[in-house]
């Protein structure tokens, strides 16, 4: 660093020398040289005084209180966008949850068929007080897979409000195809075993979906 700038005959302190001198940011030998010059040069001494006043004014500027806290939101993962997942490849927890729901629906369907006597033997022990055969056969018909209970009634204004729009009319008076097949083949459906298996499957799938979801949250 050049301590003194060019002048006519006398070499005065450069701006950088004055600035560093104020901070004591130079070697001791350089400090002494500047000091001895300042002792004999009014202009440079004045420059040092002026710059010291400026630095002093800057250092005494008031600290402004912050208008608010700048804390980041506490659940840090709010910043990490969840990776987009195609609909055909749902999260594992969702997949298991869907399977559990399907098993529960199947269980409900089989159970409904069981208690109404539509599936299995005609002489089913539980009749639940239903007397008109046409009625209970109609309601006992196992709905197709697209007629799951959560779908609800068809919103189309049908004057004859029967869920018969997907089922041919003759099924209302004849037994369901599966039951006829079961009866014709002579295979006796062990419904209680099927229901128990579906119940166990539903519980297992629901349990797995909860476990998977918990693990994915804590990961």
């Amino acid at each position: 660093m050049r301590l003194f700038g060019e002048g006519f005959g006398v070499r005065h302190c450069s701006t950088e020398t004055v600035s560093s001198f104020l901070d004591g940011a130079m070697r001791d030998s350089e400090m002494r040289k500047v000091e001895s010059h300042l002792a004999s040069c009014y202009d440079c001494a004045q420059q040092v005084d002026d710059m010291r006043a400026v630095v002093g004014a800057l250092r005494t500027l008031p600290t402004v209180p912050t208008p608010r806290s700048f804390a980041v939101p506490v659940p840090a993962r709010a910043f990490v966008a969840a990776p987009a997942r195609p609909w055909w490849r749902p999260a594992p927890a969702e997949g298991f949850r869907a399977m559990a729901a399907a098993a529960a629906i199947a269980l409900a369907v089989v159970f409904a068929g069981d208690i109404s006597g539509a599936i299995g033997t005609p002489e089913a022990p539980i009749q639940l007080g239903i007397e008109t055969p046409g009625d209970f056969i109609n309601h006992g018909t196992p709905p197709g897979p697209e007629q799951s209970p959560i779908v609800g009634p068809d919103p189309a204004p049908e004057p004859n409000n029967q869920p018969a729009d997907t089922v041919p009319d003759d099924t209302a008076t004849t037994p369901a195809p599966q039951s006829t097949l079961a009866q014709q083949s002579g295979v006796r459906l062990e419904l209680w075993a099927l229901e128990l298996a579906l119940l166990a499957l539903t519980a297992a799938l629901a349990g797995i979906s909860i476990l998977v979801r918990r693990r994915s949250l804590s990961a």
Partner: peptide
């Protein structure tokens, strides 16, 4: 650091001129 020193001195000098 040298760049910091020279920039600082120029900034202080400009402030001195403005405040004079």
């Amino acid at each position: 650091v040298g760049t910091v020193k020279s920039r600082l001195s120029r900034a202080r000098e400009a402030m001195r001129a403005a405040l004079s």
